[in-house]
Design a protein around this nucleic acid. Structure first.
Lengths: 197, 197
DNA sequence: CATTTCACATACCAACGGTATGTCAAGGTA
DNA sequence: TACCTTGACATACCGTTGGTATGTGAAATG
């Protein structure tokens, strides 16, 4: 079982990202040391610094992986709906459910902005999932279903609303009823945007 | 000019909070060292650890100060309106404007949840400003102006929406037009909650 | 005026992120 | 096959950081 160098390289990198993701999600970025990461990954700090520029760069790779997974789920569930309005609602619901995983929250919503800065975090969020929201709102505004002169502010408002709702759901002591209540309230907000016929 | 011990104590503490606030707001929690804080405050680390349990505790004191200022502005501008509906809109607009100060954002919205954890951050946010939002929404739901069966999820949605909007405004390259657009979009969201007559 | 208290200052430490250098097998070349 | 180069790490080390243990001198107390 001899491994080529490219295989070995990618395996080591994937291991570091996987271990980093698990530890960062569990105890937060600041509370996890590089020594623990490389120990659990079975490598040394030399390997980590060979693959990444530092601790923040490893976190960035982890966040990219998380964002892509969430974005893929949002896109998949939204594209399953034929009607643009249903696409918006399905995408929003999919985001809330996808981000409900505890692993996702701390990395994507808590540490992400603090570690990478809000600008970079927002660029990654935009590329992964918020873009779908902006596209859906633009389409609905174009067809006259909703009234949103500039669509960008509304996109940010709704994106922030969902982010906070996800964090609230995670720490809520109550059962799954809160998820339904949140999705209902979100649906109410979206319905309020429709032009009245 | 002899000072009593209580005076001296409070002055040192206020200086530490003021310096910490300025540095944390400028470069972020992680990038500021205790050595720089105590140097600019004209004291030593012994003084800091005599007043606070550590770096995070100093940050908590700073955040409390910021939250109280924002909450006070929101309450003042909201209470100036007689009509409950106008109170809600005025309070939301006041929050967006108050949090637009760059000092406030990094401390209150970026580093706050990451440093203290989302639970503690949310408790402080609730006590300072989100409480006013919850009260306003509860009053409007009670009078039948809006339809919000459980008011808690809607409160979190709107709070998160405003938090994110504030961050977006701060990093936006465009001029004050974005502020107006954001307030307009927020107003549109609120209007959509009103029951149709 | 003796004693206690307390608001700090000083000196120190362990742990952390980061870097410089060494090592050894995979892959190319004659 | 013998040789050399590349690269994917390992090893050893450093400066800085947050945190702590102890010392000190003036204010409060009786």
């Amino acid at each position: 079982m001899t491994r080529t160098r490219a295989e070995q390289r990618e395996e080591t990198r994937r291991t570091l990202v996987a271990v980093g993701r698990r530890l960062f999600a569990g105890r937060g970025y600041a509370a996890v040391g590089l020594a623990e990461i490389v120990r659990e990954a079975g490598v040394t700090k030399g390997a980590l610094y060979h693959h990444f520029d530092g601790k923040a760069a490893l976190f960035r790779a982890v966040l990219e992986e998380v964002q892509q997974e969430v974005g893929a789920r949002v896109a998949a569930e939204a594209d399953a709906e034929p009607d643009p309005w249903d696409q918006l609602k399905a995408g929003c619901a999919a985001f809330v459910r996808a981000a409900a995983h505890p692993d996702v929250q701390r990395i994507m919503l808590i540490d992400g902005p603090a570690v990478l800065g809000w600008n970079e975090w927002r660029a990654m969020d935009e590329a992964a999932s918020a873009r779908h929201l902006a596209e859906a709102l633009t389409a609905l505004a174009g067809s006259g279903t909703i009234t949103a002169r500039p669509v960008a502010p509304l996109t940010r408002l709704l994106s922030g609303a969902m982010n906070e709702a996800v964090l609230w759901l995670a720490q809520s002591e109550a059962g799954p009823g809160d998820l339904d209540d949140t999705l209902a309230a979100l649906s109410g907000l979206l319905e309020g945007l429709r032009v009245r016929t």
